[in-house]
Simulated scan of single mutants.
Amino acid sequence: MIRVLLADDEALIRAGVRALLGTDPAVDVVAEAANGREAVDLTIAHRPDVVLLDVQMPVLDGLDAADEIHRLVPGTGVLILTTFSEDAYIARALGGGASGFLLKAGDPRELLAGVHAVADGAAYLSPRVARHVITELSGGRLTRATTARTRVATLTSRERDVLALVGTGMSNAEIARRLHLVEGTVKAYMTSLMDRLSVRNRVQAAVLAHEAGLVAD
C-alpha cells in the first residue's frame, strides 16, 4: 500500500484529488494539509511514502515545504502538483526536494503514475513539463555535455551503470533486477554517486546522465 499525504489550501481540490487517488486500491491517503507548515508537521508524524504538494500555499509554500521534508524525512518522496508551470517553479522544485512535477491540468492518469513512480524511488515529470525541460536543456548543450562527462568520469564503472539506468527513469528495484544486484546495494551506489556528483535528487541525477551521454536519446 502506498501511503500518501495530500497538501493543498483549497478544500475542493483536495477532495477531487483524494477521490481520484481512491480509484487505485494500492493508494491510501493518510492525511491532508491546508498549508505547507502543516504538510511538514504531518509528514513527520505519519511518515507517508509520498507527499503531494501544491506550490502556492499559506504559511509555507510548497517548494519550501518540499525542501524541509527532503531534509527532515528523506525516506518520503515529494511530488509537486500545481497549476503553475513557470520556469522558476520547475527549476526550484527539481533543484530542491521534489522528485516529480505534475500539472493539475494534465491527464488524471499522470497523477497515479507519478505517485507510483515516486513511491518506488523513481523520478516523474508530466509529459508537458518533461518537454519543457528538454527544450530548455537544448541550449548550451555542448558545454554542459563536456562538464557532465568530466563529473561522471570520477565515478566507478558500476556507479556509471546505475546512473545510466536512473537516467532511463528506473527505480532502485528495477535497477537491481537489471544489474543482478540486491536493492540495498543499489541504494548504496545511489548515495555514493549523488554525493560525489553533488546532486540533490534523482531528477538532477537523471538530467546529468543524459547530458553526459550515458542514456541514448
Rank of each mutant, 00 (worst) to 15 (best):
Ala123Ile: 02
Leu103Trp: 15
Ser126Gly: 13
His132Pro: 01
Val133His: 01
Leu94Phe: 12
Val51Met: 00
Ala88Val: 13
Ala91Asp: 12
Ala119Glu: 04
Gln56Gly: 03
Tyr124Asp: 00
Leu94Thr: 02
Val55Gly: 03
Leu60Arg: 07
Gly62Asp: 02
Ser99Ala: 11
Ala93Leu: 12
His70Asn: 07
Leu52Cys: 11
Gly96Trp: 01
Tyr89Lys: 09
Ala98Pro: 01
Leu112Glu: 06
Pro127Gly: 07
His116Asp: 05
Val133Ala: 03
Gly75Val: 07
Ser126Ala: 14
Ala88Leu: 13
Pro108Ile: 13
Asp67Asn: 09
Ala88Arg: 14
His116Asn: 07
Gly106Ala: 15
Pro58Arg: 06
Tyr124Pro: 00
Asp61Ala: 05
Leu63Phe: 04
Val59Phe: 08
Ile69Leu: 04
Met57Ile: 08
Arg109His: 11
Ile90Ala: 02
Thr83Tyr: 13
Val133Tyr: 00
Asp107Asn: 15
Ile69Thr: 04
Asp61Ile: 10
Pro127Lys: 10
Phe84Glu: 07
Ala65Phe: 02
Arg71Phe: 05
Val118Gly: 03
Leu52Arg: 11
Leu52Pro: 04
Glu86Arg: 07
Ser85Phe: 06
Leu125Trp: 04
Met57Thr: 03
Ala91Tyr: 15
Ala130Glu: 14
Thr83Ser: 12
Leu102Val: 11
Asp67Glu: 15
Tyr89Asn: 09
Leu79Arg: 00
Ala119Gln: 04
Glu86Gln: 10
Val59Asn: 05
Asp120Arg: 15
Ser85Arg: 12
Gly100Leu: 06
